[in-house]
Design a binder for these strands. Structure first.
Lengths: 152, 152
DNA sequence: CTGCTAAATGAAAAATATTGTCAGTTGCAC
DNA sequence: GTGCAACTGACAATATTTTTCATTTAGCAG
């Protein structure tokens, strides 16, 4: 789910973080862009309207937003990760291996469909020629669960 | 599918690449490890048995093996990617967010199951507590397809 | 509004990750 | 065994990210 500037800034304040112009402009850059952006790309966009902002601040802001679960970090295979506004749980991406374009797809019933059904549907709806897929489940293994439990 | 040393080296030779001791030891390190390894980890392991091998050679070998589709590159969210022996198509991973352990899961019928069914089955079989998932389809968008087609 | 304080910023340097260059070495076809 | 193209290691260069620290500022109290 893509969040608005307001809900992101509200969460920042709720957690006791200050709302600086730099943070605002990074957040707005992310929410107003349909694409996933690398730190360097964000820096470039941000610098146009807010000259003087440091790349370091971009990194710090992105890190903070990821920690708070307000934006989504994506590793496509290039060296650096890219970011987009949106809750990080349940990423569903359609990636073009030609130009690197990333399209998010969503829908409540995704999880109820088989991969082959999804692939056919997405291919039809988006015009992509789908060649491959990556499916990752993230969680805690048994050992780490035991380590986390109060009995341990 | 996990490939053997022999099938990997055979493919190298088939493509006209030379079979150096350095390449052999990198390949063997990957095929003999159940885990995904970062370039630095491979360098460390390799250095024990084959002192003098350069980190640059590790990078070059990994890049080559990825290009040939002989090993699989995985981006888990850390800075650097990790590698494992195995064909890179249709990655299915189970990642522990506690310790970073990566388990591959496979099976011909994965693609016929819904995500919720898979999640339940994996959770039961592996003991993982699954919190999240990432699903990515890779292919060519319409624009890139047209650019690739002979008529363009 | 003014002043205070902890948090945030920017600049530079350091750390980390990856690639490029090139002289010397080596696998492998003959 | 010989020759050549491919490969390697060392170093440099580049790219990405984090650390450090002096200065600035958002948000709060008065």
């Amino acid at each position: 789910m893509k969040l608005s500037d307001r809900s992101i800034t509200a969460t920042l304040r709720r957690h006791g973080y200050k709302l600086t112009p730099q943070r605002r402009v990074v957040i707005h850059t992310l929410t107003s862009s349909p694409d996933h952006l690398t730190p360097a790309e964000i820096f470039e966009k941000v610098s146009k309207n807010h000259s003087g902002i440091g790349l370091v601040t971009i990194y710090r802001t992105l890190k903070l937003l990821v920690e708070l679960g307000l934006i989504c970090e994506l590793h496509t295979g290039d060296n650096c990760p890219s970011y987009t506004a949106g809750t990080p749980r349940h990423h569903h991406h359609l990636i073009c291996s030609g130009c690197g374009k990333v399209v998010d797809f969503a829908g409540a019933n995704i999880i109820e469909n088989s991969l082959s059904t999804l692939e056919a549907r997405l291919s039809h709806e988006s015009g992509f020629r789908i060649d491959d897929h990556l499916l990752e489940f993230t969680g805690l293994c048994q050992v780490c669960q035991e380590r986390q439990s109060p009995s341990g």
